[in-house]
Design a protein around this nucleic acid. Sequence first.
DNA 1: TGTTTTCGATCTTGA
DNA 2: TCAAGATCGAAAACA
Lengths: 229, 229
Amino acid sequence: MNKTTKITIIADDRERQSQVIGFLSDMPDISVQISRLATGDYLADNRLIFERKTLNDFAISIIDGRLFKQISRLANSRYKPVLILEGTGRDLSENGIRREAMQGALISISLIYGIPVLRAMNPHESARLINYATLQIRAIAGGGLSNRGGYHPKTKSKRQLFILQGLPGIGPKKAKNLLDRFGSVEKIISASIEELQLIDGIGKNIAEKIKWAVHEEKAAYGFNDDFDI
Amino acid sequence: MNKTTKITIIADDRERQSQVIGFLSDMPDISVQISRLATGDYLADNRLIFERKTLNDFAISIIDGRLFKQISRLANSRYKPVLILEGTGRDLSENGIRREAMQGALISISLIYGIPVLRAMNPHESARLINYATLQIRAIAGGGLSNRGGYHPKTKSKRQLFILQGLPGIGPKKAKNLLDRFGSVEKIISASIEELQLIDGIGKNIAEKIKWAVHEEKAAYGFNDDFDI
DNA sequence: TGTTTTCGATCTTGA
DNA sequence: TCAAGATCGAAAACA
C-alpha cells in the first residue's frame, strides 16, 4: 500500500510567501500543493493539520482574541491538529505581552484542548517538524485514509477475506466458504441470490442483504454525516 | 476535592532536593506533601501528574532508553500526565545528542502518546507551570469528556455512570443498562449474581467478576503500584 | 429448537 | 492518546 509513497502536503495559499513551503518542496519524498484550507496551514497525508505561528503572531493573536477561535476550530477539525510555534525567545522581546500570558495560553492549548505543540527555531525547522511528524504518524497508523480502521491485511487472501467480512451477515467462517467456492471477490459480488445460497450458512435472508448492499443505489450517497471542515 | 481552595501537591521523595518543591511551598494556596510516587514527580489535586525533566535528563534518557518506558507508564497512568521540560537551549550544548533526536522524541511524546509538553526556563517557572496548569484544569473540571482520571462529572447520573464503568466488563453501554434497571449504584453493588445477569450484555462471567471486585477481601490489597501515599 | 456464526461492546496492549 | 487485536456474551440465522 503506502509503503514508500510520497507524502502529500497541501499548503494554504495564504502561506504562499512563507519559506516553509520552499523547504518542504526541497525535501525528496514530499509533494506540495497549494490550495485554500478552511482551517490550519498545512494538511499532511490527509491526516495531520498543522497550524504554524511565529511567536509574534502567537502573542498578537492572544491579545486580539483571535487565538482561541482558531484553536477551537483546529480542535474540532476532522484531522489531527498540531500547533507549531516558530521563533526563539528573542523574537518576542518587542511586543509587550507577558511571559505568563503566553504560558497560560499554551497550557490551555495543550492541556485543555489536547493539541500538541511543537517548537521550531525557524522556517526550516518547521518544515522538518512537519516532515518528521508525518512520517511518525504514518509508521504507526499504517497506510492511507482510514476507511475501515485504516488497516489492511497484506496477503491477497487475507485481504479478500477482510473485504468479504464487510458484507452484512458475513464473518470469518462464511467469508472463507464463499471464497473457497467462488474463488474471487469479483465473482461473489456478481453472483446471483440463488448461487449465494449454495454456500453453507447462507440462506435467503443473508443472500438478499448481500445483493442489496452490493447493488449500488444513487440515493444512498449524497449525504453523509461526517462533517467537513 | 471539595471547595477546599488549596491545591494539594504530592511530590515524589526523589525530587526532594529540587528547588521546585521550595517554590511550590512558597505559593500561598498550595500545600505540598512529600511521598513516594509510583510514576511521575508531582501529583497535583489528585488529577494531574507532572513529570519534570531538565533538558539534560531528557537527552540522557533518550540515549539510555529509559525515556519511553517512563513515557509509556505516564500515558497509562490514571491521572492526566504532563511533561515539563526545564532548561534553555544552552543547557544541552554539552552532551552530544542531536537536536533532531530530541525533536523526534518530542513528536512521539506529544503527538503519539498525547502527553502535553510544557517548557520552563528554570525550577521557579516549573513550579509556576504546575500551579497554573492545576488551576486551569480545576476551572473546567467536569466540562470536558474524559476517561476516568480525576475528572469527576458533576451531575449525579453522570457520576453514577462514571462509577459503574470502574467495574470489570462494564463500559458506557452496560453502565447505562444497569442504572436504568436498578436505579442506584448501591442496589447494583448489592445485587446477586443472578440479578445482574438479567441485564443485557451481562452473563455469568461478568456478573461473577463484578461480585468478586465488589466483595472486599483484605488479602487482595497488599500493594497497589498506581498510587502510594 | 439447538447449534453455529456474526456482531457489538469492552479490555488490553503497544507505539 | 489512539488504534489494533483478543475476548466474551447476546442474538440472529440457519436447518
